[in-house]
Nucleic acid binder design. Structure first.
Length: 596
RNA sequence: GGCCCCAUAGUUCAACGGAUAGAAUGAGCGUUUCCUAAACGCUAGAUCCAAGUUCGAUUCUUGGUGGGGCUACCA
């Protein structure tokens, strides 16, 4: 039983003994005491005034007195209006600290026997990754790591959108303008090369539309009849008919793109256990349509198209199969959902996809539940908002897209110039320095994108993201480096903090108690972040921890202190803080340096 | 038109229905004989509007206003 639980149990008993009322444990909750008040935990008595039949102050005072006398953890209390603030004694803190210090698996909850798939990234293979993908990839990776820390077995998957009209556009443009160009001959990364032809297609398409309009066609007509778009559509048909030449070009260009993505993913620090390709899955799901019809979940219209009626669930009727028997998007998503289950027997499935598809996934999940899938209740759409630029929305056609590779490089370059400016790299060899810049640049970028509540639309200001001050990744990384410095110094002068006898520590400063309180909370924060699939909770926590530690550190007379036990205790506290930061940051996919 | 999401200091973000709404940044003023000043301290500044539920509402409900998204036999 932890401290909170035993206090709550004590409150339950207090209500029985004082007010003769039986309350269940889940009616009682503690909150952390706000820092401007004395105490560690606060119990709010307002909801229980009907039971106590007296004033808030009286109620709180009676409860507090009972807890102080009967619960070992409670050393004292104070009452402010209806708020009962409970103060814990130092020995309890030290016990908590000892537990944290002894726990080898700090930050890892026990296995819960559940399997979850996290699908993220899911790029199109016709152009390079951009800023929006970065938010997706960092979120997906981080959520997967947080779920692991929560005790899940996690499978990271990537559903690659490698077929369709958009790929054919790049291919058609390559046939027209490519001149056998390759990544090697052009010096471009494969994904950027494909992207170049996608842009060329669009330019040519626009040119043709303009000409057709000039010759008297309407805009809609022109868009449908421009020769190059017809060509792309024809190519898609050929691809589906397995035309040898088209398929071979498709394979070649996709290989380039995959090689490009691979290096981008590597630099991002994300990885996958399983790749799915739409070229393999786009025909799946038709059997489910049959199943749905026979189960009465779907119905057929006169023209043969198949629909699901979700009006009872507050949605519309949605098409699941066209009248000509061909698939729509949701058909293959139904099939892929089953495929994932067949492959891994997962209990839960998290889809990291932008919020413009909220409706689509709402429909998909409702269908799979209606069909009675065992994983139905475990389907979760981790929906995230768009990333805006100060100049407005990103639009690929207008060239306002921020390229992922370029952005990462820019962040690393800035880390380098900033670090050199501060003269912080004395004693680093070139490899170590490069590694540090990489850590700092990417840490800044990841933290910037992860600290915001995923569902909110966010603003990405390139200048601010490169800032290393304030609520940023580098601030937390810096805190870690400072602590590591203390630990080095401590071992140099021979402080053996592993052998501290905590029972000999008698006095706890406020800042130390605050740190222990925060550290004690770590596993709960992981759990919370896991339930909400929200790295932002964890990011905020790590920032708070770093800030608290920097305060502690700012006037830490550690090497002037004579009392050996206190000294060792403080070093041990630093060590634990460093471990927490390192663990927490690794759940966000961010590395922390020992020196910087 | 219908449905969904969002709205908090100048700005970017926080706040299980709880206390005087927190941080960061920007502005101003300070702090370095010593462990990393990429730090620390102090000062100024905000809940879109209106009702309702509640002992208590930034949070829940309803109605407005503003911003974004979805609303294809596209993916």
């Amino acid at each position: 039983m932890n401290i909170q639980e035993s206090i709550i149990a004590g409150i339950q008993l207090a209500f029985q003994n004082i007010f003769n009322a039986d309350l269940s444990l889940d009616q009682l909750a503690l909150a952390p005491t706000r820092k401007e008040f004395e105490g560690t935990y606060t119990f709010v008595v307002f909801p229980f005034l009907k039971i106590s039949q007296t004033t808030p102050e009286n109620t709180a005072n009676q409860l507090g007195a009972y807890l102080k006398d009967n619960v070992a953890e409670v050393a004292g209390f104070n009452v402010v209006k209806g708020f009962l603030n409970l103060e814990l004694n130092n020995q309890i803190w030290l016990g908590v600290f000892q537990q944290l210090f002894d726990n080898e698996n700090f930050g890892q909850l026990p296995a819960n026997g559940q399997k979850v798939m996290v699908e993220y990234s899911s790029p199109n293979t016709n152009k390079p990754l951009h800023l929006g993908h970065l938010r997706n990839n960092f979120l997906g990776y981080s959520v997967a790591e947080i779920l692991k820390a929560n005790g899940y077995e996690v499978i990271k998957s990537n559903l690659v959108n490698d077929r369709g009209i958009h790929i054919c556009k790049s291919m058609v443009a390559y046939q027209h303008f490519g001149n056998s160009e390759t990544p090697e001959s052009s010096g471009l990364k494969g994904d950027h090369l494909a992207g170049k032809y996608y842009v060329l297609f669009d330019q040519e398409y626009k040119k043709q539309i303009a000409m057709l309009i000039a010759s008297g066609q309407s805009e809609d007509e022109a868009k449908k009849t421009a020769p190059i778009i017809l060509e792309a559509q024809e190519m898609l048909r050929q691809w589906e008919a397995n035309d040898e030449e088209v398929v071979s070009l498709w394979k070649r260009m996709n290989e380039w793109v995959y090689a490009g993505f691979e290096s981008t993913y590597e630099r991002m620090g994300v990885d996958f256990d399983k790749f799915y390709y739409e070229s393999d899955t786009y025909l799946l799901g038709k059997d489910i349509v049959e199943e749905g019809l026979s189960k009465g979940v779907f119905f057929k219209k006169e023209n043969g198209s198949v629909w699901v009626d979700l009006t009872a669930e507050g949605l519309d009727e949605k098409l699941v199969l066209r009248g000509d028997g061909t698939s729509v998007y949701i058909t293959q998503d139904m099939g892929t959902a089953d495929l994932k289950y067949e492959d891994f027997k997962i209990d839960k499935s998290v889809y990291v996809v932008g919020n413009e598809q909220d409706y689509h996934f709402d429909v998909l999940y409702k269908i799979m539940r209606k069909l009675g899938r065992p994983y139905g209740d475990g389907l979760y759409h981790l929906s995230y908002g768009m990333v805006d630029l100060p100049s407005g929305k990103m639009k690929s056609r207008e060239g306002t897209v921020v390229d992922a590779d370029e952005l990462m490089q820019e962040m690393v370059d800035t880390a380098e110039s900033h670090t050199k400016e501060l003269g912080k790299i004395e004693g680093f060899n070139p490899e170590q320095a490069a590694e540090l810049y990489e850590m700092l640049g990417l840490g800044a970028l990841k933290y910037f994108l992860l600290k915001v509540d995923p569902k909110k639309r966010m603003l990405f200001n390139p200048k601010e993201s490169i800032e290393f001050q304030g609520n940023t990744g580098p601030f937390i990384q810096y805190s870690h480096a400072r602590i590591a410095s203390i630990l080095r110094k401590a071992s140099m002068i021979g402080v053996d903090y592993h052998a501290v006898d905590f029972s000999k520590v008698t006095k706890l400063e406020d800042s130390e108690a605050a740190l222990i309180f925060i550290l004690n909370d770590f596993e709960k924060k992981i759990e919370l972040a896991g339930q909400e699939y929200s790295p932002s909770v964890l990011a905020q926590y790590l920032f708070d921890l770093s800030k608290e530690y920097n305060r502690f550190y700012a006037d830490l007379p550690i090497f002037l202190e004579n009392d050996e036990v206190i000294l060792a205790f403080r070093v041990a506290l630093s060590d634990l803080t460093a471990k927490t930061i390192k663990k927490g940051m690794s759940l966000l996919g961010i590395n922390v340096p020992d020196r910087m």
